[in-house]
Design a protein around this nucleic acid. Structure first.
Length: 113
DNA sequence: CATTTGACTGCGT
DNA sequence: AACGCAGCCAAAT
């Protein structure tokens, strides 16, 4: 066989990375969240940033607020827009003195497929 | 085809 | 705790 080991990447979807990301996001239940890294991992990738890139460009039609940062903080530059969604979905939040004003309780809200 | 970009992450200082 | 830095990945230019 050609290559003897580099199974670092497992592109489940050769060119459908975008669709794959959107599909995963669509699977996150209301009131729950997943980190960018989580979404990437579900696709067999470690590209948390790549996921963020997809969300920025194609995430407008999905529940983008359910994809957050590893620290339990909402998407950069979207804390204010995301908040009402969490409130409406009953997502576990925690008070914070950060600029975002709040922080998601990742331990309680993290979605696990 | 090479470089840049970014809604990221973890570790060190 | 705040800040910087290097590593990573796919899409866009």
């Amino acid at each position: 066989m050609p290559r003897a080991s580099p199974e670092r990447r497992s592109p489940a979807h050769p060119q459908g990375f975008v669709d794959a990301v959107l599909a995963v996001v669509a699977d996150i239940p209301s009131g729950r969240v997943a980190t960018y890294g989580d979404v990437a991992a579900l696709l067999g990738s470690r590209g948390a940033r790549a996921v963020g890139q997809v969300m920025a460009r194609y995430g407008t039609d999905v529940a983008w607020w359910r994809v957050i940062r590893a620290g339990g903080r909402p998407p950069t530059g979207h804390a204010e827009r995301a908040r009402p969604h969490y409130d409406r979905e009953g997502t576990p939040l925690r008070a914070s003195t950060d600029d975002d004003g709040y922080r998601i309780d990742l331990a309680a809200a993290r979605w696990r497929p």
